[in-house]
Amino acid sequence: MVAANIVAKEKELDDNNVFALDDDLKLLNRAVIYGANASGKSNLPKALSFMKWFMINSSKETQSTEKIGVEPFELSTETEAKPSFFEIVFLLDGTKYRYGFEANQKRVISEWLFYVPKTNQTRLFERVSDGNLRKIKYLSNIFKGKGIYPKTRKNALFLSVAAQFNVEIAERILDWLTKQVNIVSGLDDQDHLSYTLNSLVENNDNKSEIIQLIKKLDLGIEQIRIKGASIKTGHKKFNKQGNYVSRKFFDLDSQESEGTKKIISIAGLLIDTLKYGKVLIFDEFDARLHPLISKAIVELFNSKNTNSNNAQLIFMTDDTNLLSNKLFRRDQIWFTEKNKYGATDLYSLVEYKIPNDASFESDYIKGRYGAIPFIGDLSQILGEPDA
């Protein structure tokens, strides 16, 4: 998330949301994506999730006859037969890399890896296809992957195979991707709960921060207990006179609200991301969360006190309460909108010439930035009553 050359209304936003890697490159620690239902905003985390999985697993968890899990854009005769394109630019141990590939459901069409050791971009490898002929067009001695490409199936990535054969650069990239980048959905709490549970059971370095986060979000929880593979939440119990008499423990799964379950499920993930400067991509972020709790979580990434290692949060939401110039710079706000051909456009608020004190939420609801549903006349959908 590259920062634009702008100044926010609130100076603290510039101080807390922008961090410099060098004299030329400044990055953002948060970005939010808005859009109407069916506008395509969930396609970004879906595409990144597939890309991550394919990079890590295509060499070991697929067979030669399996189809690659890409989905072409089928609303256009121009694109329905074309391969899907994926590319990411990332920093690893202070070095910038650019990696990508093109694939259809049958095979990888092309694949490439570049890096910038000093000032100029250098190619580490480039894989190309010419009909049925597949070859490595260029393979740098730095990558040290000679002899491995013939072992790469047409439906697997060379980077994934190289990591299996202990090529150091490939191993480090996939290790970074596995440990530092998390892509989650707010609708799948159970997937995250196991991480929080393990953190509390193992008494690891994150345990105290996880418990403090849960306590401070006004859930009425005073204590956490682990019993077997389940979490018990402790609440104060009072007598008729209003005096505290004991503590009552509830089963998280069967006795707590859906919102409480979600907060506890993601607490471990949030603390781990903030503490170790990781990247968290969060679809359906606001599902089952009160707007003030959503805001409190977002603000954790907006403070040098709680985000000293420049963790990055990218989230998709419909909660317009967060759409504020006190929370975000214009280059941190993105929108998705489908054009008349059914394709999704992704664009930033920084593209609009608006004053820094503009009411982002009000203007968005009014349709000034697009990316909202245009609802037809619903008054006649049930028809006229019978005479």
Rank of each mutant, 00 (worst) to 15 (best):
M1D: 14
V2G: 05
V2N: 11
A3E: 12
I6F: 04
E12A: 14
D23L: 09
N29W: 03
R30Y: 05
N37F: 07
S39P: 01
K41R: 06
F50L: 14
M51E: 11
F54T: 10
F54W: 05
N57K: 14
S58G: 11
K60L: 13
T62P: 01
E66V: 05
K67S: 06
K67H: 01
K67G: 11
V70T: 06
E71H: 13
E71L: 13
E71W: 11
F73A: 02
T77G: 11
V89W: 04
L92R: 03
N104S: 11
N104T: 08
Q105S: 13
Q105T: 10
T119K: 15
N120D: 15
T122K: 15
L124D: 09
E126W: 09
D130T: 06
N132C: 03
I136M: 13
K137T: 05
Y149G: 12
T152Q: 02
L157F: 07
Q164D: 12
V167Q: 03
E171N: 06
L174N: 08
L174K: 07
D175N: 12
T178G: 05
T178Y: 09
S185I: 01
D191R: 00
S194K: 15
Y195T: 13
Y195L: 14
V201A: 10
V201H: 07
N203V: 02
N203T: 03
E209V: 07
I210D: 01
Q212W: 01
L213C: 05
L217A: 02
I221S: 08
I224P: 02
K237A: 11
N239Y: 03
Q241W: 04
N243C: 00
Y244T: 08
Y244H: 13
L252H: 04
L252E: 04
E256W: 02
S257W: 07
G259N: 08
I271L: 06
I281Y: 00
F282Y: 09
F282H: 00
F282I: 00
F282Q: 00
D283W: 10
E284W: 03
L292R: 15
S294F: 11
I297G: 03
I297Y: 06
E299Y: 00
E299N: 04
L300N: 01
N302T: 07
N310D: 07
A311D: 01
Q312C: 03
F315Y: 09
T317R: 06
L323M: 00
F328V: 06
F328I: 09
R329G: 00
R330D: 15
E337S: 02
Y341F: 12
G342M: 01
S348D: 05
L349V: 05
P355T: 12
P355A: 08
D357P: 01
A358R: 14
R368W: 12
G370F: 03
Q380L: 10
G383T: 07
